[in-house]
Design a protein around this nucleic acid. Structure first.
Lengths: 301, 301
DNA sequence: GTTATGGTTTTTATTATAATAAACATAGCG
DNA sequence: CGCTATGTTTATTATAATAAAAACCATAAC
């Protein structure tokens, strides 16, 4: 009753498949080889073999493992409900906070949340601890967690920080040689923007994703793990709010496309000042959009 | 055998002190008031009262809690060894990594480390999880942790990121009005630098701390939680490496003081370009110092 | 009506333990 | 004698169980 035994079950069922491919009376490979084939440790293989012996599928005699009968569907074990990993949890949690519009200052109940998200309480705890680095949640003095974002303050600071990082990327980008992959990417992105502009009436929802791809491309020219780590949070927050601010979504997205196109042009000019100006202009609009989205469903006054 | 009962013990001993101040035959306050006085919940007060009743110090009769005898030293409970909190752990851990010069790629043994640091394994686990946001450690696919920093790459990226943040701070700083507290702080820092320069032959060790204070002051003008969070890690890493790179420590620190003084002058000029140039100059030196420190005891080639 | 207390529920932090992996030792075969 | 396969032991992580603490509610006393 400690770890979940999904590894054991998986190996067990895989071994059944192997047995199916062999004849009755044949002998299985050595434990070491089986372990390598199944991608698990020998310990697991041994416990699987012990079980197969128990249900009479094979007969273990010293190092002889003889297949005794064909497998039946009943032999297969049910895989236990697999819990989310900490990586999968990240998206779900931010989604929950932003979508459910959880007010800042809410005390988070680890046990309850863990149940809701179908993770071990411990996993959630760890995750919250890592989120606390971004100030989204804070640890209370004697245990427990409080949701601290997303206030207006937070949004402002996040936007400012984003601007800081992206202007840095822009400065790097314009200095790149013509043969760098980024220029081709920008061309492709330009085409995608023009394409979306043509069918904006219907597909304006697609902009959110395009926006993410666009900024990701620009920031990809900087190879810095700290920049990248933050980019993840930033793009998540902006992405979600983009989706939910339904007011004027069509015209807003159409305008943003125009800004992106101007931004791309400015980058192509290789003129650092012009490029930074275009970036600033678009990022300012983006900031306003985020603030409006917050105000729309605000606990934040 | 779950939580440690330090809260109970603390409340217990405090209540003994309260009893000492009262006469035999007097009655104690209500549970609620005691709880407020001791700063704990009523549950703790109740278990403490139950124990005091048991050892015959007081007699509980309904809501009457009569003091029966004087307290003796034997009544006091030994406080259990208090484990480190996650905040205290941070410094200790980075200290260990940098001081012991743990090579990148080392697998971290949670149970062992937890013992060494005198924390619950769980606390260490959480802490590692939060550190993983900075890429110092990474989680292995099937449990376990690997130390990933501090390679030359990491140091370079950290330096670059630091430069990015600090230049931003400088741009903010030079735009601040003369009555802002920062100008007074800079004056004080200048005096401290000049003072240290006079006794550099003897006290060159003190520079590390002064350096930290200096950069902290400059970055304090930006009120951004993301900037602040990173500053913590950055200053830790630089601070430690400063201390351990013993080569030419005296002259190196004397030179750095000169750079700081020029930096302060440039800030006072309120000229953004000049200030940024001075900042860049000093940060570049700092980067070189860090790289040299890494090379000196390098696993990183 | 107000305050104090007894009991109950919730929630968090820690410990014990099962599942896994790895290391080591031993036996069998060529 | 050397190599490989298996048996045994040990170490380590993830999770379930659980104790401590806090919060809550209902009842009793003044």
């Amino acid at each position: 009753m400690a770890r979940n035994n999904s590894r054991f079950v998986e190996a067990h069922n895989k071994l059944l498949t192997i047995c199916d491919k062999m004849e009755i009376g044949e002998t299985l490979q050595s434990e070491n080889l089986l372990a390598a084939d199944l991608g698990v440790s020998r310990t697991v293989v041994r416990s699987v073999l012990a079980r197969l012996d128990e249900i009479g599928l094979i007969a273990i005699d010293g190092r002889e493992k003889v297949i005794r009968r064909r497998t039946t569907p009943q032999d297969r074990l049910e895989r236990p409900a697999t819990l989310l990993t900490i990586e999968e949890l990240e998206g779900r949690f931010l989604d929950w906070v932003l979508r459910m519009d959880v007010p800042p200052g809410t005390a988070l109940n680890v046990a309850q949340l863990a149940k809701d998200f179908a993770v071990a309480p411990h996993t959630l705890q760890e995750f919250l601890s890592s989120l606390s680095r971004f100030g989204i949640v804070v640890r209370r003095p004697r245990g427990g967690w409080v949701l601290h974002g997303f206030t207006r303050e937070y949004a402002l600071e996040l936007s400012d920080f984003r601007t800081l990082l992206e202007l840095n990327s822009v400065r790097h980008l314009v200095a790149l040689p013509p043969e760098h992959r980024i220029w081709g990417q920008l061309d492709a992105l330009e085409q995608a923007h023009l394409g979306l502009l043509n069918r904006i009436e219907r597909d304006f929802h697609d902009f959110s994703l395009l926006d993410e791809r666009f900024h990701e491309a620009i920031n990809s020219v900087v190879t810095n793990r700290f920049v990248k780590e933050f980019q993840k949070v930033i793009s998540l927050v902006f992405h979600y709010h983009f989706q939910w601010n339904k007011a004027d979504e069509r015209t807003r997205n159409a305008d943003a496309i125009q800004e992106h196109l101007a931004y791309i042009d400015a980058l192509r000019s290789r003129d650092p000042e012009r490029a930074q100006a275009a970036a600033l202009c678009h990022l300012a609009t983006s900031k306003q959009t985020l603030l409006k989205a917050l105000k729309a469903n605000s606990h934040t006054d």
